[in-house]
């Protein structure tokens, strides 16, 4: 009869328990949400970018990247079976959110030390929609300018 040795005696690295892994992942996503918000704040506005050739090229890259991010967040919404909720938030943001996006976002990422997957996911939806909306609007302005010239 053989008994399996405890993991520590076998000198194998111990894999963190599931709840510990989930806590670490939530912390990682929380940190990344904060970094993304800071990066978004550093990018010049769409109208400003549209005013120079170099800016226009950046504008297109940001749009492309925001669309890719949006698709991936939509993929997560499908994983948790909430694509209609995603669309609801996205449409709501499209209609109502302007320069106040940070006021909507901040409570989600500063929840008094409490991090929830829901607030993190919602923050991602808001950031992806805000970026798409902001730079899509700039592209429309750019197209209008090109037609006029």
């Amino acid at each position: 009869m053989s008994f399996e040795q405890p993991r520590a005696q076998r000198n194998e690295p111990e894999e963190p328990e599931l709840h510990e892994r989930l806590d670490n992942l939530e912390l990682r996503v929380h940190k990344l949400v904060g970094e993304t918000k800071m990066n978004l704040q550093r990018i010049p506005g769409g109208e400003e970018l549209a005013s120079t050739a170099e800016g226009q090229s950046k504008l297109l890259k940001i749009q492309e990247s925001a669309r890719r991010f949006n698709q991936r967040v939509l993929g997560v919404a499908a994983m948790i079976n909430t694509p209609t909720v995603f669309t609801g938030i996205a449409e709501g943001i499209g209609k109502h959110m302007g320069a106040d996006w940070e006021q909507t976002l901040d409570p989600l990422i500063n929840m008094g030390g409490r991090i929830t997957a829901t607030s993190l996911f919602t923050a991602c939806v808001i950031m992806s929609m805000r970026t798409m909306k902001m730079y899509d609007q700039a592209e429309k302005t750019l197209n209008t300018m090109e037609r006029k010239s």
């Binding site: 992942l25 996503v29 949400v33 993304t36 991936r72 993929g75 997560v76 997957a117 996911f121 991602c124």
Partner: peptide
């Protein structure tokens, strides 16, 4: 959660 982290 991993997918969200990778997307970000």
């Amino acid at each position: 959660l991993k997918e969200l982290a990778n997307a970000l």
